[in-house]
């Protein structure tokens, strides 16, 4: 099998390393992360719609902290997964796709798609600063949808290339 360009390999390894490190940090520092998230919610009362009622505010804070933990957890799992997707898919592109431009386009789409997990880090941060609904909407609209679409287009392009590739003589 042919190796893809070094930049693509580097992004795959970095995404894997970030995914693994994110999982370890989450596991070791869970109480600190929860405390930090709760403090940020308290520091942004308007964004989170805190009303001054302890019972209601506790529920809002718990939901926001849960969303932050979910974002970090998705960052970990998607980082591991998308690093591997980029590694194996880019190897297939390097091996079977003829034409420098077509390969370049597919590398660009797949590499952008591999950055998709970063959207979940944005998701976690945006929930804290903008509130749960607005933070999730921002991450989905501007990061997750764009990078996820790049991954899907890259994989679809690779599938077309494999389907139309010439057989070995």
């Amino acid at each position: 099998m042919t190796r893809p360009p070094l930049v693509v390999v580097l992004v795959a390894v970095l995404v894997l390393a970030l995914g693994e490190t994110g999982g370890a940090v989450m596991s070791r520092l869970r109480p600190q992360i929860e405390r930090y998230a709760a403090a940020r919610v308290a520091a942004n009362p308007r964004a989170h719609g805190l009303a001054g009622s302890a019972e209601y505010d506790d529920e809002v804070r718990d939901r926001a902290v849960y969303a932050v933990e979910a974002g970090l957890s998705f960052f970990h799992t998607h980082g591991e997964g998308m690093g591997l997707v980029l590694f194996f898919a880019a190897t297939l592109v390097a091996s079977v796709v003829p034409g420098r431009r077509a390969r370049g386009g597919l590398y660009a789409l797949l590499t952008a798609g591999a950055l998709f997990p970063l959207g979940y880090a944005v998701y976690a941060g945006a929930v804290l600063e903008l509130g749960r609904e607005a933070g999730i909407a921002l991450a989905e609209r501007w990061v997750l949808t764009a990078l996820g679409s790049a991954a899907i287009l890259g994989l679809a392009g690779l599938a077309v290339a494999i389907a139309t590739a010439r057989d070995r003589a």
């Binding site: 099998m1 042919t2 190796r3 190897t91 390097a94 091996s95 079977v96 796709v97 003829p98 494999i162 590739a165 010439r166 057989d167 070995r168 003589a169």
Partner: peptide, 17 residues
């Protein structure tokens, strides 16, 4: 079906994994 040909050839050491 037959296997797909490797674009760079099967034994190109400069670009092979």
């Amino acid at each position: 079906s037959r296997p797909i040909a490797d674009r760079a050839g099967p034994t190109d050491p400069a670009t092979a994994w």
